[in-house]
Write a protein that binds this DNA or RNA. Structure first.
Lengths: 227, 227
DNA sequence: GCACATTATTTTGTTGACAAAATACAGTCG
DNA sequence: CGACTGTATTTTGTCAACAAAATAATGTGC
């Protein structure tokens, strides 16, 4: 008997591609919170039937990006200040845990490379284009922090939380400079090099706290549904 | 214009019913880890077409109960000791947070009622039937602890983690008495009445720690797939 | 012009069908 | 008997179609 259920490389079914596509559009801010997602329109736009769309919806719903109401259809989830606070609170706790577990196993040299890239943003002002570049760096940075924590579920959860945060950041109308955020990232790197647990946690939490504050602005303004 | 996307009572589509049904079967242990879930067989057994089944799979996958491999199909996820440790670690952190946030808002009287129900189990030995009753109580207890923490996402996450723990408990071959677990639950109630934060956290963590230890046994024995 | 009932259109829920891939089976050759 | 190849069967991926529900549009009376 051949072996069942072995891994199958990186084959992507339509459902997977649709899923990635929609998620990407939502995170990028192309699909604003509240906008409805009619199956047929999407299916025509993507040249697939409705089945893969519906399957993708179910995954996106579990990840918080899409809200499905039976017999009414799917829509991009609304973001409220409450949601933001909830997400950041959980992330603070879990990322602290992840970093604590990663200590000694973090690739500092990789992290420093990312740090150097960060520096280039220090005087740039935020716009759609370089914000996306910045968020790519941000993802790399935080991934490096928790990558080796040894808890797969934790890594998965953190990845989803980060996606949500990047989403609302792309959706927010707030425009600032990157300098504060860059400084904080560099401070975390320094703390890691010093190997001072307390300082590490402190700089990390400071970073997340400020990120939350700068996210808690201009929310609720794009809701397309009245409810 | 009428209002879009308003809530629609407790209507359950086929997909929802299928989802609940399969999840229930998995948690109860009727569907053992590793067993494949062929769409057509399930669809014939439940008298529905394959579409609702596939949609349910996508949700169950995100919740960790089912593993989908493209072109190969779905199977009940395997539980490893690693998974158990991962889940408990996250749960310890998040439930501590939830309880901390709930302090002062916990319905102690409700909790004490549950505590009384617990006492009836103190000398019973574990078997399939009264374990299920016990887990219902356990769910009530932990729900009461975090219900009022004010963070919806956190509540959602904890619910999923608890389901997974109950799942592996129903799947495990381990058979013990309830006495230890009951004692710990009562200790938590007492600590809450005393309003001593440190003691509350301590009893909670002790409980979760022992629960983990008693779960970390006899795993990997039921895997149906060879891989 | 506005409230309300009626009709038309859109959209979802669900099914059945078909091709392609994966799996199981059978027969052949060493 | 065992490895191997080709064939039959099962199973997934995807689509198109239909009924029922929800939404939008229309019309009627006031």
């Amino acid at each position: 008997m051949k072996e069942y259920l072995e891994d199958l490389g990186n084959y992507l079914s339509l459902k997977d591609r649709v899923y990635q596509n929609i998620k990407f559009q939502i995170i990028r801010g192309n699909l604003k919170p509240g906008t409805r997602l009619p199956e047929e329109k999407l299916s025509r736009a993507m040249n697939v039937s409705r089945s893969p769309i519906r399957e993708a919806f179910n995954r996106l719903e579990k990840e918080g990006f899409v809200t499905i109401l039976p017999r009414k259809g799917a829509a991009v989830s609304n973001i409220t200040t409450e949601t933001i606070e909830d997400i950041f609170e959980i992330r603070e706790t879990l990322e602290s845990l992840a970093v604590k577990k990663s200590l000694g196993k973090i690739f500092i040299d990789e992290l420093e490379k990312v740090g150097d890239n960060f520096k280039e943003f220090i005087n740039k002002s935020e716009n759609a284009e370089n914000r996306i570049q910045y968020l790519v760096l941000d993802k790399k940075f935080h991934d490096l922090l928790s990558q080796n924590c040894g808890n797969k579920k934790l890594i998965e959860l953190l990845a989803n939380l980060q996606e949500q945060i990047h989403w609302l950041r792309n959706t927010s109308l707030k425009r600032t400079t990157f300098s504060g955020s860059v400084r904080e990232h560099l401070a975390i790197i320094e703390a890691l090099k010093g190997n001072d647990k307390k300082l590490i946690t402190k700089t990390l939490l400071q970073h997340l706290e400020r990120a939350k504050e700068s996210s808690l602005i201009e929310v609720n303004s794009w809701s397309a549904t009245s409810k």
